[in-house]
Structures are given as C-alpha cells and as structure tokens.
Design a protein around this nucleic acid. Sequence first.
DNA 1: TCCAATTTGTAGCCTAGGCAAACTTTGATG
DNA 2: CATCAAAGTTTGCCTAGGCTACAAATTGGA
Lengths: 146, 146
Amino acid sequence: MSSPTHSKKETPINPFVRVREDHATELAEDYLELIEDLIEQSGEARAVDIAAAMGVRQVTVTKAIGRLKRDGLVTAAPYRSIFLTDQGKQIAKRARARHHTVLGFLVALGVDPEVAEIDAEGIEHHLSPPTFIAMQKFIEQQPAVA
Amino acid sequence: MSSPTHSKKETPINPFVRVREDHATELAEDYLELIEDLIEQSGEARAVDIAAAMGVRQVTVTKAIGRLKRDGLVTAAPYRSIFLTDQGKQIAKRARARHHTVLGFLVALGVDPEVAEIDAEGIEHHLSPPTFIAMQKFIEQQPAVA
DNA sequence: TCCAATTTGTAGCCTAGGCAAACTTTGATG
DNA sequence: CATCAAAGTTTGCCTAGGCTACAAATTGGA
C-alpha cells in the first residue's frame, strides 16, 4: 500500500508537522474573523475591543495587527481602526463558515452550546476537508435534536 | 467601570484564552505520549527517534526535553535515553486514551483512518470533558461500521 | 584497542506571541 | 481652545519552539 503517487499537493505526512502548520495560521484566522464581526456589529474594529475579545493586552493586538498588515490581510493606519483586505475577508469568511459548521456539529452531537462554542474555537483549525465534510453530513442526517 | 471585577476564574474563560492554554500543554503531551510509545516499541526513547517522529531537528528535541525535565515530567541524563516520571506517565496515559477516543470517533463518523489519525492529533488537545463524553457515547451507539 | 560514524549537547540566531511601563494621539467637554 | 481621559503606540523584556553550525561523547567495527 505504498503511495500510488496521486499528484496532489503533499499534505504533511507527519501529524505533528500538520499541527505546527495549523498553529501558524490559526491566530490570524481568529483575528480576521473577529475583526469582521466587530465591523458588522459596531461599525468598526478597534484595538481595545479586539483585545477584550481575545483576552490579551492592547499591545499584543498592535503587534498581531502588524503581522496581519505585513501579510496583506488587513489595512490599518496609526490611531485608526482596522479594515480587512479582500484576501483577509476571504479568509475570515472561510473561518466563519468552518466555525459555524463545527459549532453546529458539536451541538448536533449533544454538546451544550456554551461548551461547544469554546471547543469549536480550539478544533476548527485542525480539520481536513474529509473530516469537515463528514461533520456536515452528520448535521444534515441529524433528526431534530430532542 | 462601576463593576468591581467580580473575579470569577473557573468557568467562562474566553475561548481564545482557553485555546492559548491548551497550546501551552499540547506539545508536552505529544512528547510524553511519543516517549512512552518508543519505550514500549523499542525499549528506549532516544532523541534521534523522537526527532524523526515529531518532524523536527534533534536540537529541538533536546530543548523540549529540557523543558519537560524542568517541569518534572521526564528524567534524562546526558547521552542517555529518556524516561517518564510518574507524573509524566500519568499525562501520557491520559493523552493516549484521549487520542484513541478521538481517533475512534472520527472513524465512526466515517472519516478515512489515515486522515482521522492526522486530524485527531490536532483536535485531541482542545476537547472539554462534555465533548469527550459525547464522542464516547457516539462510538458506543454506533452500529458496526461496514 | 582505536577510530570513525552516529548521537547528543552547546552556542547563537530567529519569529511568534505574550507582558508592563511610558509615551503619543485623539477626541470630548467645559 | 485648553485640558484630560481613553485609545493606541513604542520600547524593552520574556518564553516557547524552531533552525544551523559546531563540539563532544558514545558506540560499534576493524
């Protein structure tokens, strides 16, 4: 059962390597999703609100925004609020869809929504497409939760 | 500002804070579980094998082992192989049980075992007890997967 | 026994992501 | 329009967790 060399982009064979790669993008996704939420809810994304939501100090947000800017995911002028670039919006949208699915899945599994919300945040960045699809199928097949 | 900080700490921690805390212990758990595996499989845990399994350089293993030593989870003399302390064994045992359950759950969900193995590594560190129990129940209720 | 390959350790460097303290900018209010 | 609190930034520090390059110890084979 050696590999039939299906020319797909190589997914890391090593699970630990995969996890390390996931971690590298995970915080960025959380920030982007949060920024989009704040803009929708309150019209703008301010560092003070991001810090409160993330449970970190403002200075930590400043540094994180700097990285997001460097990577072309947000735009931000000093002392002004933060905006997503198109690329940032795309990532935020995918992150939100994934979060929504994982949350729905956990609830369908019977997990309390509050607990599901917390756990979803942890696991949503570590799902390969097949697992994601399996969760979606499970939600669809689920009879009304009694 | 009027509220004098109702100082709760146990439950409703911010999901992002929870994830940060999980990340702090996650690598240690992976190392401990791996070390135990290596000891069982080959009689001893050597840095070179740990490095290969984790997908990192040996120097990275040396540093990680140093942290585990500092935290009382392993013992290791220079140029000798690595052993788990009782506390380390306990953590490894719990980690392995969790891994096994998550893997079984994903497979029961219909995910291909190879994919499940990779995804399990990512998500097993982010499950609260209720979610864990829900997964166990799901496995039990599952009819034999044909 | 001795030597060379393997393995482990050390030194030094890097980025991410945290923090506190001090400073600057903004904007609301008299 | 002066002031001042809130918000944001800068500086400097820390740990975790990666890396390369090199040094030292161990071990197996001739």
